[in-house]
Design a protein around this nucleic acid. Structure first.
Lengths: 212, 212
DNA sequence: CCGGATTTCGAACAACCGTTAGATAATTGC
DNA sequence: GCAATTATCTAACGGTTGTTCGAAATCCGG
């Protein structure tokens, strides 16, 4: 019987552990939870299936680690980018920063985030719960971002910010389903997403006094 | 060896066939492709696992049927609602109609659409192809909808409508991940989605002459 | 370069998977 | 109500799954 946390281990262990997680994230992303096999993970990681159990107690523990790492990466990316802004940055600039950070973390930062987004819904409820606190924290972050903006009049008062948040994050999250980095840069996607979010698709009425 | 299409069959067959598909769609939606078991499908449908093979030649044939039915339902819903509009209806009204139809088909029309959306990405590539013509037709429908609107100046000329389409449909498709019919009606979600899409979240500049 | 700790292997396990086929039950036209 | 057709059940198959465990290989401080 394994200890829950490996007591003291050499450095090779952490390398292998990382390779296993990388392989798991990659397969999880494209094949979902049920189709991802321990033997396939081991194969990609370059080891034998049984050897996995030296590093993880079960398949679910691997999946759990991948999922948590995925949401953590997005959370930290957005949080850090926001924290790096000068104090007093206006609301729209903050929202724009968050959207870009979210998309960058999702699309360029690898398989963990994509796997986390795509498979969270089909994973046994038992360890959906384990990642829930972090997910809720992330939702709260966005909710406060939008709520503060609305309070100060930066976004329209007649919108339900909670609904707006799910619609916006949905639009961004869905990018993992189709985005191809060889087609257009992430920034271009982010830029138009922010543009449409702020101004809408209908041509704005430009008062004559503002025309240049 | 079975004939590909069952030659002539009584009416009970179609009932059971429907129950099998219903069960498959439900499980596929919440558990993904790999976790959905023939024995579990049979259990939900109230029959024995082996009996499924009287109606379907393989598990993949069931999944294929569910997926195709899912996209077909959305396609037809949007297509029919658009066709029901009076000729000459303006572009924004047409887009609004399409958004509502898409969301309604997705959220109230059951497990097929959700299953189709959530599992398409993790299904063997062999029969991703089979559903691809219909999917492309659906994409084309939206592309022409947005393209025509842009051509006539109903939506801004500086937007990439192809990117806009993926962002918009992503936002709508993602609703299957969180929408709870007991919380708010579908129309409310659709209404705000259209509102934000058209006008954006930033308060509009209202020229004095238009104030009431 | 040695000896103990760390890491991996290799083979086996019970359980479960999709699938098959023959026996059995239910349904239906007459 | 009777055959004949239609539909389901039962039991098994080969293969794959997650998992276990003792033996072998590797690593590394002294």
């Amino acid at each position: 019987m394994n200890d829950n946390l490996p007591a003291r281990r050499g450095r090779k262990s952490e390398i292998s552990r990382g390779q296993i997680l990388d392989a798991a994230a990659r397969m999880l992303r494209r094949q979902g939870y049920g189709n991802t096999t321990l033997r396939a993970i081991a194969d990609v990681a370059g080891i034998q299936a049984g050897s996995i159990y030296y590093h993880f107690a079960s398949k679910d523990e691997i999946m759990d680690a991948v999922l948590e790492r995925g949401v953590a990466a997005v959370y930290e990316a957005v949080h850090d980018q926001l924290a790096a802004l000068p104090v007093g940055t206006d609301h729209l600039k903050r929202i724009e920063t968050a959207v870009i950070a979210h998309l960058e973390a999702l699309l360029s930062h690898g398989d963990y985030t994509s796997a986390s987004i795509r498979t969270y819904g089909e994973v046994p409820a038992a360890f959906q719960q384990k990642a829930q606190p972090l997910r809720e924290a992330y939702v709260t972050l966005w909710q406060e971002l939008l709520g503060a903006a609305q309070r100060d009049g930066a976004i329209r008062a007649d919108l339900d910010t909670s609904l707006l948040r799910t619609l916006l994050l949905g639009s961004l999250n869905w990018c993992v389903e189709w985005y191809d980095p060889s087609q257009r840069p992430v920034r271009e996607v982010a830029a138009q997403a922010v543009d449409v979010l702020f101004r809408g698709v209908v041509p704005a009425y430009v008062p004559p006094s503002l025309k240049e």
